[in-house]
Write a protein that binds this DNA or RNA. Structure first.
Lengths: 202, 202, 202, 202
DNA sequence: TATGAATGAGGGTTCATTCAT
DNA sequence: CATGAATGAACCCTCATTCAT
């Protein structure tokens, strides 16, 4: 009888996935080697293949886990809504500040590039994740409009796309500019602009 | 006695750089091979090494050329300014719609990733290019504020960063979502919001 | 205090050997993995090493068992002799039709190849087995000649070698040609030729 | 302009194929490494891939070349026919003595095993080669029967199969027994038996 | 004893780079 | 200058074997 529990297996999978996330982000997916990942996970090279089919599988799992992570954070944020406008901006703040460490940004960019190149499952999942994220924020915007916090004239989906793009773009600029850049301040600025636009519409 | 003119050399360099840009964007920098690039440039593999030190050098040149391309477009756009607010939004429109084909987006992402990883020259040039882009748009904003088109309360640099981020982010979403996405419409929406915010400030 | 009886050990050894025989024949010795064999034997990979030193040992055992199997069949056939000529041909028929399934042929070829390459024990055992098979049939031929069923002019050992070779070769052609080939008919033909040759000698 | 002629390429291909033949025969196809083959051909490992798609391709080429070699020898032997019976036996002698060095036998066995396992092209070509060899000798037998050298009662195809099998089987026994074994003598014995059978039929 | 996770050497293959022609 | 054959290091992956449980 094996003493190796499912919990142990899950821990290994998680440890490998975590190492992969780190190495993929630090070195780039193509440049990362299975040995590096194994070393970072404290395993031998071959051991990874007991838990993942191969590098591609590991990449897919890394992407999926990143999206899942964001998804969970969003679901959680949905509850903590004060006014709807705030809820919307909170979602952006959450995505940007809570989640957007360097690692996440790098992996998101890699994911976008992969999806643009390889097509197939990666492409479909990336696209569906973006759809999800846009749809979620769109819901906030719509509710905020119903509550009279945002002028009805603004396209809810459009504003959602804007926020999504902003989060992505600020992540990149953060990556490029380093510490002297404060993404949260930028998002606050956007928030004030939208609020001012809402006020001006009256 | 040299029959090989500088013009000939320049043409070769340009042809290789152009092929590199195309292949790097299509296949990814790591996945792209020197042979592919040579083939696309109509040369033999070895010939590239007469014009570039190696793959890294070619990558750097490709990044630099991409930035130079944008730089030129911006300089050109500076002249065509009507109102300053329009000028600012025009710069965004230009960056987004004129320049942001798939190739450009992919290379920009690769560039951001490279700069985050390799440090050194690439990092410094990427950062200085972003500084340039932000500074340029910042100038437009400032002028627009002087002209009373935008409320003075908005941080010029902040608004510039917002626009830069938006352009980057919309590029990514375009990459992810494909044809059903219209980046220009999104930028128009942002423009209206900013205008409304400006109006509301009075 | 040992609860593990010799019978249990023998059963395990036999089960592993049988699985090995099957997997080696189906996939080839080099391509076969210890895991496949273990799975086919209903054991874990590591368990094999309690009964066999390693893969090489298992291969040797498989070869030895194949030869032993044939040896036993021959010994058994020796008794059932009518006329000596018939006995001789019966031995061939036995070897060819009773024993020569695909599995046996594949393993025999692998064995011949191994023996040609590795030398050592395998080589010596293979050679000694062939010596045995030739000697056995040679005895039949000699007896048949004494009984006047075969002309004395034929070299007993030569005829035996011919029969041995025929059985091997027909096995290969059967392997190559598949179902449309009937090895037994071929052996019958050889039998008639030898009988005719014997008759013609008078 | 490249100075590398087609002749040079052909020479390389031939040199690699020859090295592959040697290494495959000596070490076995699965055990043989591309490095060994490259070393034997006086090349680096990577160079092989300019001339062959990979190991499988090299194996296929080796098999094909072996068959082609035999085919050519047979075609050549067809001309040198005295009496038809002799022609038939000459074909066997040729196949056995001229062609059946250790290398050839090993590769033929590997080929038969491969064809039995992998199916596909290898299987089809192996089968079609055997068909060819059997058909060729069958033609000799038929002609010999027309010429009254062999009793008409013998099945031409059957006798051909017998000869083919004999050649294969003698090759194996030669492999197993080493120098003390003389395959040609064995074939001579078979020849005498067939002749005696022919005589006895009158 | 039995298990199967872990190891790590080694194989096939690719590709940046060099260099004889 | 241009070519493209050749090199060889490095990658992904497999699997015989070991060993803690």
């Amino acid at each position: 009888m094996t003493r190796v529990t499912q919990a142990h297996i899950d821990a290994r999978v998680e440890s490998i996935r975590s190492a992969a996330r780190s190495v993929f982000a630090r070195r780039g997916i193509e440049a990362a080697t299975m040995s590096e990942i194994a070393a970072e996970a404290g395993l031998s090279t071959g051991a990874i293949y007991r838990y993942f089919q191969g590098k591609d599988d590991l990449v897919a799992a890394t992407f999926a886990e990143g999206q899942e992570r964001t998804r969970r954070a969003f679901e959680q944020a949905r509850a903590n809504s004060g006014s709807m406008l705030e809820a919307m901006l909170e979602a952006g703040r959450l995505a940007l500040v809570e989640l957007r460490d360097r690692e996440t940004v790098c992996l998101d960019l890699e994911c976008a590039l992969s999806s643009a190149r390889t097509g197939g499952v990666v492409r479909e999942e990336t696209r569906s994740f973006r759809e999800y994220a846009i749809g979620l924020v769109e819901g906030f915007v719509f509710a905020a409009q119903q509550a009279g916090e945002i002028p009805a004239g603004l396209d809810p989906r459009g504003l959602s796309v804007l926020l999504n793009a902003l989060v992505l773009g600020l992540g990149i600029i953060d990556l490029e500019m380093g510490d002297e850049f404060d993404a949260e301040v930028m998002l606050g600025l956007f928030s004030r602009i939208v609020l001012a636009a809402g006020a001006g519409a009256h």
